[in-house]
Amino acid sequence: MFKRLIALCMCAGMMCSQVVSAGIFKEGDQILIQTSVWTTHYDPEPDHNNHQKLINLEWYFPETNVDALPRPSGRDWRDEVQWLIGGASFLNSFDQRTTSLYTGGRYNFHDSGDLKTYGKLTAGLIHGYRGEYRDKIPFNRFGVAPSILPAFGVEYNRMNLEMIPFGTAGFMVNVGYYFR
């Protein structure tokens, strides 16, 4: 597990250097790479997999100039949302390779410099529930289904710990590292 996280961080670091040199990565952008360290199902079944082998990559955009937005009420909490796009590859609850592409936002509840606590909400598409497990997620008629996932996390320096409930099925804990 630890070796996999080290390898993922090295790959992400090389990718970040390529993105920066290409001029795509701008000042204030962040890339988060994560892997799952613990998963449980609320109602476990014998065929459930609790080892996702998750690789998750998120790109956080820099803050926008909210002073230029015409809001009659002035600044509010929406101005503090940090927008992101992401993608993940993992083994689903039934050992099938699954991918997810999503977008969302993160809101810091507490920010004391090195330590931040936050909530995150993402929405996107998930593909990978096939065969007899196709109907285990809603709206998966054509092999692709919508997904909405909340997350709650703690960030210390560049390290990340995140808890994610996935619907009514279970709960996972991810760890990650930010590249800035």
Rank of each mutant, 00 (worst) to 15 (best):
E162I: 10
V173E: 01
P62L: 00
N56A: 07
L115M: 14
G23S: 08
S147P: 01
I33N: 01
L91D: 02
P150Y: 08
F94L: 03
T39I: 14
D47Q: 14
R78A: 02
G104K: 11
V37N: 03
M163L: 14
V37T: 12
T117A: 13
G105Q: 00
N50Q: 13
D95V: 02
V66I: 09
S100C: 07
L84E: 13
R78Q: 11
Q52Y: 13
G176D: 06
C16K: 15
G143F: 03
D29S: 00
A7T: 09
I55W: 15
T122N: 10
A12Y: 06
L91S: 02
F179T: 03
W38N: 11
F61R: 02
V154P: 04
A123G: 07
E58T: 09
I164S: 05
L161S: 01
R75I: 01
I33L: 12
I164P: 07
F166T: 10
H127V: 00
M163R: 06
F2M: 08
V81W: 15
D95E: 11
V66A: 12
H51N: 13
K3E: 07
V154D: 06
D95Q: 13
N92S: 06
V37L: 14
Q30D: 13
I85E: 05
I85V: 15
G143S: 06
K136C: 13
W83P: 05
Y133M: 12
S21W: 09
F139K: 12
E63F: 13
R158T: 12
Y60K: 02
E27L: 02
Y156F: 14
L115K: 04
G23W: 09
E27Q: 15
I31E: 10
S112L: 03
L121V: 15
D43Y: 14
D29K: 02
I126L: 15
Q82M: 04
E27A: 08
G128F: 09
N160S: 13
P146H: 09
R180C: 06
T40L: 06
F152N: 10
T98K: 05
F2C: 08
Y60G: 00
S73G: 11
V37A: 08
S112A: 14
G74S: 04
L57K: 08
G119F: 14
C9G: 12
I24A: 09
K120G: 04
K136Y: 15
K53S: 11
E63I: 04
Q18T: 14
I85D: 00
T168C: 04
V81I: 15
A145I: 00
N140M: 11
E58C: 13
E58S: 14
Q18G: 13
